[in-house]
Write a protein that binds this DNA or RNA. Sequence first.
RNA 1: GCUCCCAUCGUCUAGCGGUCUAGGACGUGGCCCUCUCAAGGCCAAGACACGGGUUCGAGUCCCGUUGGGAGCGCCA
Length: 471
Amino acid sequence: MATVRTRFAPSPTGFLHLGGARTALFNQAFAHGHGGVLVLRVEDTDRERSTPAAERAVLEGLRWLGIDWDEGPLRQSERMERYAAAVERLLASGRAYRCTCTREELEERRQKTIAAGRKWTYDGRCREADHGPDCGAHTVRLRLPEHERLAWDDLVFGPSGQDAGEIGDMIVRRSDGGPLYHLAGVVDDIEMGITHVIRGADHHSNTPFHLALYRALDAEPPRFAHVPLIVGSDGKKLSKRRDPVSVQHYRDQGYLPEALRNWLVRIGWSHGDQEIFSREEIVRLFDLDAVHRAPARAEPGKLVWLNQHYLKTLPFERLLPALQPFLDAEAGRPVQATPELERLVHLLRERSKTLMEMASLARFLLVEDDALVFDEKAVAKHWKPALEAPLAELHDALAELPTWSEAELEKTFEAVCARHQLKLGKLAQPVRVAATGGPVSPGIHETLAVLGRERTLARIALALARIRAAA
RNA sequence: GCUCCCAUCGUCUAGCGGUCUAGGACGUGGCCCUCUCAAGGCCAAGACACGGGUUCGAGUCCCGUUGGGAGCGCCA
């Protein structure tokens, strides 16, 4: 059997679409799982939208997700002569003909047909007219057989097909000489030796036309697999207005590529009860047989859980670089990794949903003492006058500590609590607010150990000053 | 409007005629743990859209209804 060759063919819209990302993932998993190759092809025949920057964004999204391709990116804009040649071949063999019907004429006839309650297909007016190359402005239409079943066995949907007569003679070349998307795609898939076309189910209905194109071009069609569309939380088509549709969006929100990849691969595909899939497992276990036929909603709930899972389990060397941009943004400057910061990240990975949240929880370590932003509700709740004495005592005891360690800190807290008959929480919370500005952080001993003696004392002193001023 | 496709807990899904009083995961609620927040542990609520068939037997097969999706461009 020939080597499996799949392709992912995005149009350069300036971002990688969620649905596209999953299609790419499926293509890669299928190809690599079968010892084949993935070809990347950029469908940039729409000159308006297609800029180098827009293309770069799509490729960046793919790389970030860990989807690697083996050939390309090939660009349709650089292959226009191939499409032109294909149309000429169609014309020469009589498989296609020139059509001089104008848009207006077409529209008029279409309206009439629809008004009569019938389905519109091209009525074949120019079919036998035999227009030559100099017939003026014209399109080129594929001549479809009157009665012929255009059928295929879809790898996801099973036996599918349509009668050629229901399709009508479709345009393959515009009057400006440009190829239609369908023609370009089929020509590319033929010339690139694509064996398996794995694409969104929105193309299921277009496939009979594509089959006719393969036939007219005397080419063997590939196997087709249509994967169900991802729909929005409201069950409707993913909309750029309502739903976060780009991979970049999730990346910027602090989701790890591992999490997004795992989330996407499980939408419309499953492997028993397994939820967690590594990159290698996706390639090894992915199977078109197990792909669903029903559209699925993109609910981010499980993505959050997956992200937490990967934040907790990822190798630290992988986590830190991923976190870096979020730390820099939080601090407003490039942040240097220190042993204290690394220790804090270890503590924070157990309690963060996203990298963004993690950076936000690390803020207290990144900023100067006077740049702490206090949660005033927490301040009001925990900085009570009664706390002045124990807090002052804690401050002085901490200043005297022989070594600044979690164990020593714990002992000191216990001693102060015992002397003032306080539960640990009564002392820990006010100190936490003093040290971090808010009521949420890792354990108080760990937090202070990371903060260091100087800054801890300075921040407790600041809290004391405020308590005294209020009294 | 026409053509095609789809239908299990709120969501993602397991199920490929009997092992289903329908399993898992996320989410939700409760309890435990606890210096906060998490994490972790335990428990709970929660679905075969509806109606007809076929069959000894249907979540699983067939038909219809309803609901949803896609396609029907000189867009990609």
